[in-house]
């Protein structure tokens, strides 16, 4: 398996995990289901993330591609994987911009490989946008509604 698909570790600008970065390329969702040894997969917007659920044990990296920032299907894909218990790296790649970072983080992404490198300071601010949040998601944060009724 070469590097024909996906981003290389060098492209990852932000990573919120301590484990080793997977250093080989990803395969398509179809290929991942067929190949019993595939450990890294790339989800395109039209792919159904749920077909990967039986194989989550052996997957260490899922890249979710955002060809354009306005196509939000990847947010659902990410949450679905995390909701199913996926604990490996979930990497947002493609047209990933400052103003999407906080939402992506909340949907379970823990690595970011934007097409164009982002300003570090702007990004740090963006990741810290919400002191508190209204929705319960896979990031495990307690919601405002829960905090109100502690």
């Amino acid at each position: 398996m070469g590097h024909d698909l996906g981003t290389s570790p060098d492209d990852v600008q932000f990573r919120f995990r301590d484990d080793e970065v997977v250093d080989h390329g990803t395969v398509t969702v179809d290929a991942c289901c067929d190949q019993t040894n595939a450990t890294a997969v790339r989800i395109e917007p039209g792919d159904d993330a749920r077909v990967l659920l039986p194989y989550l044990d052996r997957i260490a990296l899922v890249e979710v591609n955002f060809p354009s920032f306005g196509d939000g299907r990847g947010y659902s894909a990410a949450r679905i994987l995390r909701e199913a218990g996926y604990t490996g790296e979930l990497r947002a790649v493609g047209d990933v911009l400052i103003d999407q970072l906080s939402h992506m983080r909340r949907c379970g992404f823990d690595a970011f490989a934007p097409d164009k490198r982002l300003d570090e300071e702007d990004a740090a601010r963006a990741f810290a946008t919400w002191d508190n949040v209204y929705q319960r998601t896979v990031d495990g944060r307690r919601t405002i509604q829960e905090l109100r009724h502690e």
Partner: peptide
Amino acid sequence: RQWSSFHPEFTYL
């Protein structure tokens, strides 16, 4: 309103 404000999954519908 609260649920839909800054909903992380549904901002790029």
